[in-house]
Design a protein around this nucleic acid. Structure first.
Lengths: 145, 145
DNA sequence: AAGACTTACATCGATTTTTGATATTGTTGC
DNA sequence: GCAACAATATCAAAAATCGATGTAAGTCTT
């Protein structure tokens, strides 16, 4: 009831919200690792395998073989890094982007359905928090370095 | 700059925030499925295998074998459901609860570090949004049924 | 500019996880 | 008490992941 921020409670509600937000019926059945790789490549553009590795919860051989499979399936492209003959630059193909976009669209749809059930005041509060969540994410990204 | 809620942008920022929020250095190396099962059992108390199955992204045989391993490792308990001779009630042991609690504590710590870098106004906005996020999660839970 | 070292990614065999098909046992409605 | 159904277990096969190690390109030292 105070306007003090209770981080423990915030953490809990994010955890709970995520159990709903994350679990999408993945149209084709990609596993978690695959979806994460596609999402990361979608966000952070072309990446070297090693840089991609840093954000994924996989060891390098597993990522190499996953990437090989995704290339075969036409979801990602591999091209040699022009600045380093050892490295490969990975990026999404049109098809790969389409999958990421489609999952994002599903989330937007579901969240829209939920948000529609909020009161106008609650929606306004949520609208106001978007920029704070953005700031939080930026800070987290800075801290990572 | 308006106070209209842009759900697409909200979705994006949640996606991005989660890539930071989710990725914890899991102390013992539990995989995603294991952590999800522990978290769900921690939240929703004793559950039958089938009910647990509904929230996890696994087929039933995989869950049965995961649960068997977790029981052997002393993280969960299995007891027959007194109301249904076919069913098993699953719950966390003290050790299992400790793992869930410890991961939660890590998240609280990390989020606290981030929140400390916000301005007081930003923190207040976040505090105000906690109850809306809670509402949103409740609505989502209702819709699930 | 040659050798030593390091870095980026690939390969390989072993292990773990997950799956589909099916079995087993208990429950429910008639 | 029998047929249909439901909850979980079993099992063999497929898929995912890992640790160890290989190969080749870059960097550093002298």
């Amino acid at each position: 009831m105070t306007d003090e921020l209770d981080v423990d409670r915030l953490t809990t509600v994010i955890e709970d919200f995520n159990t709903i937000f994350i679990r999408l019926p993945s149209v084709r059945r990609f596993n978690f690792s695959t979806l994460s790789v596609l999402h990361t490549l979608g966000r952070r553009g072309p990446l070297r395998l090693t840089d991609l590795l840093a954000t994924e919860q996989l060891k390098q051989p597993a990522l190499t073989s996953l990437v090989a499979k995704l290339e075969q399936d036409g979801l990602i492209q591999r091209r040699p890094d022009p600045t380093d003959g050892r490295a490969m630059l990975l990026s999404l193909t049109r098809t790969g982007r389409e999958i990421v976009r489609s999952r994002h669209a599903n989330r937007v749809k579901r969240l829209t359905d939920l948000v529609d059930q909020l009161t106008p005041v609650e929606r306004a509060v949520l609208a106001g928090s978007v920029h704070v969540l953005t700031r939080l994410t930026e800070i987290a990204a800075e801290d990572r370095q």
